[in-house]
Amino acid sequence: MPASASAGIGLRLPHHTDFLAMQPSTGWVEVHSENYFSGPALVVLERVRADYPVSLHGVGLSLGSATGVDDTHLERLKVLADRIAPFLVSEHLAWTGADGTHLADLLPLPLHEESLEIFCRNVTHAQEVLKRQILVENPTTYLSFPESTIPEPDFLAEVSRRTGCGLICDINNIFVSAHNHGWDAQTYLRALPREAVAEYHLAGHMPGEAESAGLLLDTHDCAISPAVWALFDEALRIIGPCPVMIERDARLPALSVLLEEAALAQTRLDAQARSADRVLVA
């Protein structure tokens, strides 16, 4: 893996020009796949790809859909992946719409045997079409369903076991969902199959207001909180190092701000690697 245990950034459209001009020394970049299905942005991504490993992170495949994934969408993802040759391709434990409608949000999945079978079937189909392993990311959720019977990390572990997919461990999503549902974040981390985790995500969150009061919201619009950095340190101890991505989607700061956060993540990865070396020497 070219970006093994290095820190990268989420590259968003408003940063394209700055990124090409700066040629920053980030380990890799991750982009939202759907933004590059068409249009002039794809040309920029090809220029970026010439110098950096690229990860394709999708938001529209709807792997949790009871009626299966949209094969047209999957084929367009395959065309993009064949063109960009990404080192990672990922999606979410979520669905985006029912019966042909697409709602442009990562919607929560009831977690039980039927949804597990459906989700695994869709992941297997996607991997067969793409002819590669994909990663599945733990989502942020704001509600749970009474019919759910399987804890989320156990569900993800079983999806990985049955399909061979890898996992993205989104530290901020665990922190936010743990707050919203009263979970213990460290217990969640320990329940994930460490050998399947191939990427971390780090992002910012905000407290909800008005009708969302009491919840934390996965806003991706601010700096990573100290509590999320601390949980990331815990994840590095429990799961170990792997590529980590700084994810910002709204109220984008200057590119340099994201690169500074990536440098902080890299420092933590390096510290964990030194710590692991000391253990081996001892």
Partner: peptide, 30 residues
């Protein structure tokens, strides 16, 4: 218990319904 398909149809309908003040706060986020 709802089948997954029925749950998703019901959830989608709730998201596209005209909002009311009685929307549970988790649903309101979505």
């Amino acid at each position: 218990m709802y089948s997954l398909r029925d749950r998703q149809k019901k959830f989608q309908a709730a998201l596209l319904a005209i909002s009311t003040n009685e929307t549970p706060n988790g649903l309101a986020v979505y």
